[in-house]
Computed example of a mutant assay.
Amino acid sequence: MRIAVIGAGALGGLFATLLEGAGHDVTVTARGAALSAIRADGIRLTGGFGDSHAHPRALERLTETPELALVCTKAQDAERAITDNAELLNGCPVIVVQNGLDGVRTAERILPNSDCFGLLVIVAANYTEPGHVTVTTVAPSYLGRGTGAVDGTTLRWQAILGPALHTRSLDNFVGAQWTKLVVNMLNALPAITGLSVQDVVGSAPLRRVLTASMRETVQSAVKRGVRFGSLQKLSNRRLRLFSHLPLWAGQVLPLRMRARMGGVPNLGSTLQSLNRGQRTEIDYLNGAVVREAALAGLPAPINALLTALVHEVEASGTHLTPAQVLARFAAL
C-alpha cells in the first residue's frame, strides 16, 4: 500500500520505518536537516522495536495522492502541514497521530472529503538526531474516531496497520483523547526543569505539582461532560475517583505511570522539542486544559502556570531549578 507519513520526527520516523518493514511503499515529508538526513541515509530505528534501517522516499511536500496518510507532526504544526498537502490529501483516508484534543477536528475541517481518524500513541520515542529514532518504552497504539463504538472502517484500517504498528481499535476515541491528555501532563515539568519524567515523579514536591495538574485536567473534563475512554489501565471510573482524592493520595497515579516506563530516561516530547530548539506543543497540552476549564467555568491555575513556565524556558533557553519552580507555585 502507498502510505504517506507527514512529519518525520520521533513518531513519524518510527511509523515510517515499521511500515516499510511490513512491505508498504512509504513516502515521508520533512524539512531542513531531517529531510537531508533521510535522503542521504534513510531512517535508523533502535531500541524497543529492535534495530532497523528504512529508506523511504523523502519529500518536502507530497507529489502524488497516497492510499493512506498519517499526520505525525507536532500539534502546533498540523494545520500548516495538512494545508500544504491538502490538494493531494483531500479525499484520501487520514490518520492523525497527535497529542491534544484538536488534531482530528483540524484534519476534518481542512479535508472535508477525507475519512479522518485518530491514533493515540503510548510508545515513548526519542528523536536522537535527524534520521535516528530510539524507542525507550514499547506499547500498542489505539485507533478510533468519535465517541461511539468502533465502526467497520476503523476495524479495516486496524487490520491493515495492526501488524506493523501494533495497533488496536478503540471505542469512545474522544474520551480516550482526554485520558491521554491526563497522561500528557507528564510533559511540562521535565521541559521546565530539564529532568527526565522519572526524576520529576521521583521528587515528592514536583510530583505534588504534577498530581495537581492531572487533577485539574480530570475535573475540567468531568465538568465538560466527558466520559473518559479506557487507556493505559485508566478508566472513566478510576479517573473520576482520582479527581476527588486529596493530593497526597492522588500521587499514586503518576507513581504508577513511572513504574511502567522502566529505567531508561524518558525525556517527554516537550523537552525533546526544547532540546532541538523548536517550539513546543504546550498550548495543546496544559494550555488545552486551561481553555477547556474556562469553558466549564473552572479555574486551572496549575496548568496556566505550567504553560507560562514552559514558554519562559522557550524564550530564555534556560531551564529552571526545582527550587525555582516550587517557589513560583508557592505564590499560588
Rank of each mutant, 00 (worst) to 15 (best):
V209S: 06
V28E: 03
L62Y: 03
D283H: 03
A8E: 11
R279H: 15
A75I: 13
D199G: 02
D151P: 14
K180W: 01
F228Y: 07
V150N: 10
A10E: 06
N184L: 13
A259L: 09
G146R: 12
V26T: 05
H244G: 11
T46M: 13
R109H: 00
L271Y: 13
L253C: 01
T211G: 07
P66M: 02
M1W: 03
A221H: 06
R2G: 10
F173N: 09
T128D: 13
E314G: 05
R61E: 02
L143C: 05
I95C: 02
G23S: 04
R237Y: 11
Q278V: 01
C92S: 10
H55P: 03
P205H: 02
V138Y: 04
M261Y: 13
A34W: 12
N113C: 05
S269I: 09
A259W: 04
R39V: 05
L247I: 14
R276K: 14
N275A: 15
H53T: 13
A300D: 09
R168E: 14
L231G: 10
I302R: 06
A300R: 00
G131D: 03
S316C: 02
A54R: 09
N275Q: 15
L234M: 15
T147V: 14
P254L: 12
A221T: 01
L35Q: 06
A16L: 07
L155C: 13
A40S: 15
G131Q: 00
M185W: 05
G202Y: 12
L255Y: 10
G146D: 12
H55K: 14
T321A: 11
Q158R: 14
T153H: 11
A164K: 05
L186V: 13
D171E: 08
F49D: 04
S114K: 04
I6T: 04
V96K: 10
R238M: 12
N172L: 01
K233E: 15
S36C: 11
L245M: 00
T137F: 12
G100Y: 00
V226E: 11
P130H: 10
R44P: 01
P112Q: 00
L195W: 13
V200G: 01
T17R: 02
A323S: 08
K74D: 08
Q158T: 15
T134E: 15
A315D: 14
E60N: 09
L19K: 09
P66N: 00
T211D: 07
E20Y: 01
L68G: 10
G262M: 02
L245N: 05
V97R: 04
L234W: 04
L241T: 12
H311M: 12
F49S: 01
R215V: 12
I302L: 01
T211C: 09
N126Y: 11
R31A: 07
A191Q: 04
V150R: 00
L245T: 01
L89S: 05
R207L: 08
A296H: 10
K223Y: 05
D51E: 15
I95D: 01
V150W: 04
G48A: 10
G262V: 00
T128N: 08
V123P: 06
L68V: 04
Q232M: 14
S243N: 03
D102C: 09
G91F: 06
L245D: 00
I110N: 09
L88V: 11
E312I: 06
N286Y: 02
T211W: 10
G42T: 13
N236V: 07
L320V: 11
V197A: 02
L234T: 01
